[in-house]
Design a protein around this nucleic acid. Sequence first.
DNA 1: CGGTATCCTGACCGATACTG
DNA 2: CAGTATCGGTCAGGATACCG
Lengths: 131, 131
Amino acid sequence: MNDAPPDHALRGNVFSEHCPSREVLKHVTSRWGVLLLVALGDGAQRFGELRRRVGGISEKMLAQTLVWLEQDGFVQRIVQSAAPPRVEYRLTPLGEEISGKMAELADWLENNLGAMLAAQQKTPGTQIAGV
Amino acid sequence: MNDAPPDHALRGNVFSEHCPSREVLKHVTSRWGVLLLVALGDGAQRFGELRRRVGGISEKMLAQTLVWLEQDGFVQRIVQSAAPPRVEYRLTPLGEEISGKMAELADWLENNLGAMLAAQQKTPGTQIAGV
DNA sequence: CGGTATCCTGACCGATACTG
DNA sequence: CAGTATCGGTCAGGATACCG
C-alpha cells in the first residue's frame, strides 16, 4: 500500500481549542503516555515487562494508555501466541519519532533535575497561598 | 553561596515511582503546561496575551500553571508597574531549553497530524505475528 | 488589567476481583 | 500472562464572583 499519506495536506494548531491535535497531545503527554513511549524506545516489550519497568503504573492504566497510543498510530500490538498469552507492543515508525522526542525530554529532565529542585527551594518572589 | 553545583551531582530517573522528576514532568506535560511553554518561547508575554493565545485556558488554570512553572524554575514573573498592573512572564534560561523541546514536539505533532488521524480511522490493527 | 477564593463536576486513576 | 469489569477516591480543571 501507499503508506505515505500527505502529511502536508493538513496542519494542526495546538493553540486552537478544537484542533484534533489537542487529543493526541493529551495522549502522548498523559501521565503514563510519555513514560511508555520512552520505555518502548528500547524495543518491543511485553505487557508484564512494561508493567514492571514503569514504576507505579496500574494494569488498568497500562492497558488504557496502550490503547490510546495504538489508536493514534504510535504503537502496534502483536499477538505472538495464544497458548500462554504472549503479546508484544512495539513502536510504529511514527511512534519511533515521537518516542525519540519524549526520550530527549525525559533525559534532559533527569540531567537537570538538580537545577529544578534548587529553584523549588528558593523563596518564591510571588507565592500564591493554598496551592 | 556558591555551594550549588547540583546539575551533575544528582540524576533523576523518571521510571522510578518516587523520583522528584515525576513532579516536574507532571507540570511540564500538564494540559496547559506544554502549551504555555511553547507560547512563551516567542518571548515575554503578559497574562492577558497568554490567555488569548492559548485557546480554551481559564484564568484559574493559567495562573495555576504559571505558578508551577515558576516554582520549577522555568518561568520568571516580572512586575513592571503597579498603577495599571503590568506583569510579564518570561522564560528563564532553564525554561528556554525545555520550551525548545516542547516546541519541537508541538511542531512535529502539527505536521504529522494527518498520519495520526488516518491511523485513528483504521480498524484496530492487532496483528497476529507471522514473524 | 491581573489576579484570588470558593464551589463543583467529571475524568483520571488506583485497588480489587474476575476471565481466557 | 494478559487482560477486562466494577467501584470509588482524588484532583485537575471550569464557572463564577470578588479584589488591588
